[in-house]
Design a protein around this nucleic acid. Structure first.
Length: 801
RNA sequence: GCCGCUGUGGUGGAAUAGGCAGACACAAGGGACUUAAAAUCCCUCGGACUAAACAUCCGUACCGGUUCGACCCCGGUCAGCGGCACCA
């Protein structure tokens, strides 16, 4: 009887659907397990096999946990606001709501065909009113707590998408969505004060279990540095020019200062600056450069000396020039630096170009050739002279600065505030009203959701204005505070908004009174295990931790961190070894695979193809191996003999395999778990038969990977009940070890022979047994034995001369 | 430039408290079954030397070190991938 996978798979998918098999229970007395995967953006292209791999990891863990008796929450939803949908709408004339619904339907059917055990009762869609109502609600809470502000700055603007982008969305000077070049534009935009949480976001990493590289990327993104603020006085002015430095130990080597072109001191002393025209021109020139260009021109430093402002080195009391240069950014530190050309490569390049003095204060390099950034003995440094340790030098200087009252220890973060707006239609409207008298006024909570108005034309305005600005009925309103005529904010929220708290909504997705009930959050949170892509580690993961920490601070949630554990899967590359993409034409559609090989084969293969955390290329022929394996499992039915216990021949292998599979699943080592089951099957085939107990337990351990075929076999074998209601298999540690172990005999470190020895034989016994082997005596005869090493249960190594 | 990860057969990948390198698969070759093909089953499968086997030697990117013993630890080099990037 051949295995008809398509009939079996649809049979069980229907069964699970009808029985609500995978609905998380609201019985809060049971031990819980909350597994979270990143919900997809429902694009028109549908899912590709990369999605399947991303979800299959925790799918296996979830199914195992259910068998282990946990109440499992394994939800799915759709992160549906965003530009691609809106662009499709503009192109086709179909409303984004409709586009979204179509795509969600498509995604849902694809996910169900793979047989994922998601709780389909808890689906969230970020674009639905009863969801984005709470996104707006959280925004207003932030507004209320001073975490929302507006600022007019140069922003990253994509001329093609006609939107303002965050730094995160415009990395490398290219738009994240359409890859056009970003230009700088002066605009008043919304910000969330994420920097206020920088320290908490950093410290919180100590409380959670993230993969080391994930943690590191977050730390780098937050970018904490410790150093000092130092005040430099300006000659003949009552003025302090404040700088930030991580190297206060090099203060004696400061020979000039540099300020950013936008530094306010220029405006303040316009009248005293002789070359103000040149400075204005330089500033204008810098403004024209995109951030990308500005950061690319690393080698050739530009700048202008300020004629009229001279600073004084507070330690040496020497007069030093002040320059304006665009290698200093207004957005980091104080927008001004002390330049130490001898020990900083940028300052060195600048000093060489402008002929400024270079004074060595740390021995060890050759400053006539290049800046020396290493450690060494302090020289030309007054009180620091002779110190050889950087840390000591910094400590001493900080104390010295404190005594003299010219500086103090300080901390800086690279992370910037979050530009929180889009000038587009398909996003959550920002619930703020602009009133001529009252300023920015929050829309009252009871008026939420502030609905996205129906509209026919989604085309953004020509200068980056939102399409909402064209809808008078939306824009014109009354001020909630004073009742006078006012205008609504027309920007919408960025795509990251909806995904910043979706994991909370899953806990209680139908609640109309709050974002989720206290009881549900108490029970389900934190997420026990969150898996997703590496590409979201610096954005989504930071943003959602920020929102969660804010909600914790205002008492809405009960855990300070949302995710107890975070892992990441590797990409599936195309068969050509390239990243899968529509433009390369190497995308594999899971529907095609399911139709031809079955869902179980697909599931098995995406986990078997390699290390789960590493990228691996798609190989159709390799997948056939998985199909072959399942077909052989199917055929085992014919070899089953009666027996409620493991047979002697297989007992130890069964226990070993159960142990291996159980442990490997916990460590995301699905490939070796599957390999172990394949090995077991090979052994069974060699023996020629297996007992009912053996077959039953093999089906149980294979079930999380290949649920359809195993359920079907479980039923046809008449083991009783349905498989997903059984208990996960257990192993006996004592039965995982054999009575005899094979010992390796090495001579001079090279393997020469093997022998079997009783388990835990002592060293002398092993050595004695080794010397009884003819292979050994043959080589050692007539030679001097220099040394004998015996490792119990492993090997004997004989060193001869 | 800085930080991180990776480098193992024809291919995907196994193997780390330092102890038999290549598990499990794929591909390839040979055979069985078949009118034939598919499917299935059996055998071979890192390299050199062999007609073949035994034996021997070489082999985990490259060079060196520690060790009885190194894919694994240490120092250096190269290559690929990812992240950050004039961050003071």
């Amino acid at each position: 009887m051949k295995y008809d996978f398509s009939a079996v798979e649809s049979k069980w998918q229907k069964y699970w659907d009808e029985h609500g098999t995978f609905h998380a229970s609201e019985d809060h007395n049971k031990k819980k397990f909350y597994a979270l995967v990143e919900f997809p953006y429902p694009s028109g292209a549908g899912m590709h096999v990369g999605h399947i791999k991303a979800y299959s990891g925790l799918e296996v863990v979830s199914r195992k946990r259910r068998l282990q008796g946990y109440n499992v929450l394994f939800p799915i939803g759709f992160d549906a606001y965003g530009l691609p949908t809106e662009n499709t709408a503009i192109k086709t004339g179909v409303h984004p709501r409709q586009v979204t619904d179509n795509n969600i339907t498509k995604f849902t059917s694809q996910l169900k065909r793979v047989g994922f055990s998601f709780d389909w009762d808890r689906v969230v869609d970020t674009t639905e009113e009863d969801y984005y109502k709470w996104t707006q609600w959280i925004f207003l809470k932030m507004f209320e707590n001073g975490l929302v502000f507006r600022d007019k700055t140069l922003v990253n603007y994509c001329p093609s998408c006609k939107v303002v982008l965050s730094n995160e969305d415009s990395q490398g000077g290219k738009c994240d969505i359409c890859h056009s070049d970003i230009v700088q534009k002066d605009k008043e935009v919304w910000y969330l004060r994420i920097t206020e949480y920088a320290d908490k976001l950093l410290q919180g990493l100590d409380e959670v279990d993230y993969l080391p590289n994930i943690r590191l990327q977050q730390e780098n993104w937050i970018g904490k540095s410790t150093g000092a603020f130092v005040n430099f006085s300006i000659k003949e002015q009552d003025e302090q020019l404040r700088i930030y430095t991580t190297r206060p130990d090099t203060l004696y080597g400061v020979t000039f200062m540099v300020i950013a072109p936008e530094h306010p001191i220029i405006e303040k002393y316009r009248d005293q600056i002789a070359n103000i025209d040149a400075l204005d021109a330089y500033k204008a020139e810098c403004a024209k450069k995109s951030e990308f260009e500005r950061t690319q021109l690393v080698k050739d430093k530009t700048g202008v000396k300020i004629e009229g402002l001279t600073a004084i080195n507070p330690i040496t009391e020497k007069e030093i020039p002040v320059y304006v240069a665009d290698y200093v950014m207004m957005g980091y530190g104080t927008g001004a630096i002390m330049a130490v050309p001898a020990h900083d490569t940028r300052d060195y390049d600048f000093a060489k170009k402008f002929g400024i003095d270079i004074i060595e204060v740390i021995k060890g390099g050759d400053i006539s050739v290049e800046a020396y950034t290493g450690d060494g003995e302090m020289v030309n440094s007054g009180v620091l002279n002779g110190i050889t340790n950087k840390k000591d030098a910094i400590e001493k200087m900080l104390a010295f600065l404190g005594e003299k009252g010219i500086g103090e220890k300080g901390v800086q973060f690279k992370m910037k505030d979050w530009a929180f707006n889009r000038q587009r239609y398909w996003g959550e409207p920002i619930p703020i009203v602009h009133c001529a008298d009252c300023g920015m006024v929050a829309v009252p909570y009871e008026e939420l959701p502030l609905r996205l108005p129906p509209v026919d034309n989604f085309q953004p305005g020509s200068d980056g204005e939102s399409p909402l600005a064209k809808i008078d009925s939306f824009v014109n309103c009354k001020c909630p505070k004073c009742g006078k005529d006012a205008k609504r904010e027309t920007d919408t929220m960025p795509q990251w908004a909806g995904s910043s708290w979706y994991f909370l909504r899953y806990c209680d997705n139908k609640n109309n009174d709050c974002l989720a009930s206290r009881e549900a959050l108490d029970y389900w949170m934190p997420v026990d295990w969150y898996n997703g892509g590496m590409e979201h580690v610096t954005r989504h993961l930071i943003y959602s931790r920020f929102w969660h920490k804010f909600l914790y601070d205002i008492g809405e949630v009960t855990t300070s961190e949302p995710y107890a554990k975070r892992t990441a899967q590797g990409l599936i590359l195309g068969p050509d070894g390239q990243k899968m993409s529509k433009s390369r034409g190497n995308v594999v559609d899971p529907n095609d695979v399911v139709a031809e090989y079955g869902a179980d084969t697909l599931r098995l293969y995406v986990l078997f193809m390699g290390d789960y955390e590493q990228a691996a290329p798609w190989s159709e022929s390799s997948m056939k191996g998985c199909k072959r394996f399942l077909d052989r499992v199917w055929k085992l039915q014919e070899k089953v003999v009666d027996g409620n216990e493991y047979s002697d021949k297989l007992r130890s292998s069964m226990h070993k395999t159960i142990k291996k599979v159980s442990e490997d699943i916990e460590n995301l080592r699905f490939n070796t778990a599957i390999a172990a089951m394949m090995g077991l099957l090979n052994q069974i085939d060699e023996i020629g038969s297996l007992t009912k107990a053996e077959y039953r337990d093999l089906l149980i351990m294979l079930n999380p990977f290949a649920p359809h075929i195993t359920e079907e076999l479980y039923e046809t074998m008449g083991f009783g009940g349905v498989l997903n209601e059984q208990k996960w298999v257990e192993y006996d540690e004592a039965l995982c070890v054999d009575n005899t172990v094979e010992i390796v005999v090495q001579i001079n470190g090279k393997v020469k022979a093997h022998f079997d020895a009783p388990l835990n034989s002592d060293r002398e016994t092993l050595e004695k047994m080794a010397f009884e082997l003819p292979e050994v005596t043959k080589i050692t005869d007539g030679k001097t034995i220099v040394k004998k090493i015996a490792v119990p249960n492993k090997l004997v190594n004989i060193v001869v001369k």
